[in-house]
């Protein structure tokens, strides 16, 4: 039997979230694959509730790390709480959700433990008796099969949605309180506050139809026909990150992991490649129509209808067809 599989489960206000359950589902699946057991770890201030949620899952154990200095996330606090625990338990793999919080401290935890680091895994499979992981490369245009080499544990962060949360197996697990020595530890960051990133407040979540533009638009001065299309459809205009970063549209219209999460009846993706950070914000849409000049763009993997072509030709033609329809 190889070392255990651990799931470090992210919580919010003492409750598990979908990302946390996904991590447990993945740990259970990996433990089955490798013929070992899975353990969940949850840390924070006031996380007894999350601990009891985990106690109802098929796990060999639940470790709850409570400390007043773990209330607000800091890399110093999380490192000091997790490193000794993982070092002592010597698991084979430690799984995390690939959230902004995890990404911030995971590399440093790996260093501290002299562990391997495998960011953004999409899944695993056994090939010739050896475990292979899949992760996206080149903006999701390709998937790489990766194996881990060398000694010691490997810390793996799992892309959102890679392991469905509803696959968690119920059971009953013993809960253990673990003390963390955090007094006097350098938290490495003094958190001052949290505020909204956008100045305005466009609520895209209520829109039935959204026209999303990506870098393929090629410049702010070329937005005219797309705005016209938005008017004709009674839609809201949305954008991918580079469009906002370039200042072509305001931040409040950004869709994706750092922007809004939308689920309209129709999402028209124009010149958007379909990177995961954009997809997580719109893949719940009813119908997705993608226009992209590159047939291998990842957006087509989630699109209902795909048009391989130049948006500067397709959009004016669509505007004309809509106007004709309206006219009679």
């Amino acid at each position: 039997m190889s070392g255990q599989i651990w799931a470090v489960v992210q919580q919010k206000d003492g409750r598990l979230q979908r990302a946390g359950r996904e991590t447990v589902a993945a740990a259970q699946a990996l433990a089955r694959e490798l013929g070992t057991t899975a353990v969940a770890v949850v840390l924070g201030d006031g996380v007894a509730g999350a601990g009891s949620e985990l106690a109802g899952m098929a796990l060999a154990g639940v470790r709850v790390v409570e400390h007043s200095r773990l209330g607000a996330y800091t890399p110093g606090g999380y490192l000091a709480a997790l490193a000794p625990l993982i070092r002592a338990g010597a698991p084979a793999y430690v799984l995390f959700a690939h959230t902004y919080q995890t990404v911030d401290y995971l590399p440093r935890l790996a260093q501290e433990l002299d562990a391997g680091l495998l960011p953004e895994a999409l899944g695993f499979q056994k090939v010739d008796g050896e475990l292979r992981w899949t992760r996206p490369v080149l903006g999701g245009k390709l998937h790489a099969q990766v194996r881990t080499v060398g000694e010691g544990p490997v810390l793996v962060s799992l892309q959102s949605g890679a392991f469905p949360a509803d696959a968690v197996q119920a059971g009953s697990a013993p809960v253990e309180q673990v003390a963390a020595a955090l007094d006097g530890v350098d938290l490495q960051r003094e958190v001052l506050g949290i505020e909204s990133a956008a100045e305005g407040t466009v609520d895209l979540t209520k829109a039935e139809v959204i026209v999303g533009v990506g870098r393929g638009i090629g410049g702010q001065e070329k937005l005219g026909p797309v705005e016209e299309l938005t008017r004709l459809l009674g839609a809201e205009l949305a954008a991918s990150r580079p469009v906002v970063d370039s200042g072509w549209l305001p931040r409040e219209r950004q869709v994706g992991s750092s922007g809004q999460t939308v689920a309209p009846k129709l999402y028209l993706a124009l010149g958007i490649s379909g990177a995961i950070q954009h997809l997580v914000g719109m893949k719940g849409s009813g119908m997705v129509i993608a226009v992209n000049k590159d047939a291998s763009a990842p957006i087509f993997k989630i699109a209902t209808y795909g048009v391989v072509g130049d948006l500067h030709e397709v959009v004016p033609a669509l505007n004309q067809a809509l106007q004709q329809r309206a006219a009679g």
Binding site: L142, Q145, V154, T304
Partner: peptide, 21 residues
Amino acid sequence: SRLETVSVALPVSGREVEWIE
């Protein structure tokens, strides 16, 4: 390095897009 890339491939999708030509 603790990671070794064995191969890269085009992602497989769950559903087939319907092309409009």
